[in-house]
Design a protein around this nucleic acid. Structure first.
Lengths: 116, 116
DNA sequence: CTGAATCCGATCGGATACTG
DNA sequence: CAGTATCCGATCGGATTCAG
């Protein structure tokens, strides 16, 4: 009986993780969000901070904006300034970010240990 | 002064997340691990459970084994049975998995809400 | 400065067929 | 059953160029 329960739990988790990976998976999305947590940034600032090509950054920002993680602010101050800013919704990712970064730190330590 | 601190924190987090994504990023690794949490599985069972091609499953399992998340057990029972099993180390991912799946559920709810 | 357009190689990922 | 090999299209991702 516990097996059936396990299966249900597993399947629902698989579905949920699918949804999550679909929205924030890939190489860049989470990194962009982290970079913007430090403060709003302009296109070129992000590019330099993340070492990402303009082509990919442009795509990813469009996607992040479409999915409600990022706002594109245009300040018409002559010269016009364009900044990217996190939305409130992106704060809902904080648990994931924390879990990932703390695991990443421990994982790196493990790797270094193994080399010796 | 707080700005400099922010920058340091951000950079270290970017590095840690890099490490994490390098190890467990991509479309399949976490899904395979979740499927195996339910219990050990054979190659074909995994394939059906995840709807993944043999080609990709083979690659990903090799990678997961190399990085210490999965063990490949061979039972020489005539006929030989081969099973994949999670290592203890893969349990260190539980926080990440929990965070991802609970966020995924909330995110899906948000999406459904938005369509109405 | 903010992108979009193009080109090109690398990788992803499924389908199919094949081996032990 | 447990993979491997091959083929092929889609996407990723950098470099460069170009426009507003």
């Amino acid at each position: 009986m516990g097996e059936l329960l396990d299966k249900k739990v597993c399947e629902s988790k698989l579905g949920a993780i699918d949804d999550a990976l679909y929205a924030i998976g890939g190489k860049w999305k989470l990194k962009i969000i982290i970079a913007l947590k430090e403060g709003n940034k302009r296109f070129n600032e992000l590019q330099r901070a993340l070492d990402i090509s303009a082509r990919m950054l442009s795509r990813e920002l469009k996607d992040l904006e479409l999915n409600g993680f990022v706002d594109r602010k245009v300040y018409t101050d002559t010269p016009v300034v364009i900044e990217y800013e996190l939305t409130d919704y992106s704060n809902s990712l904080s648990e994931i970010l924390e879990a990932l970064s703390s695991w990443g730190i421990k994982h790196r330590e493990k790797l270094i240990e193994e080399r010796s």
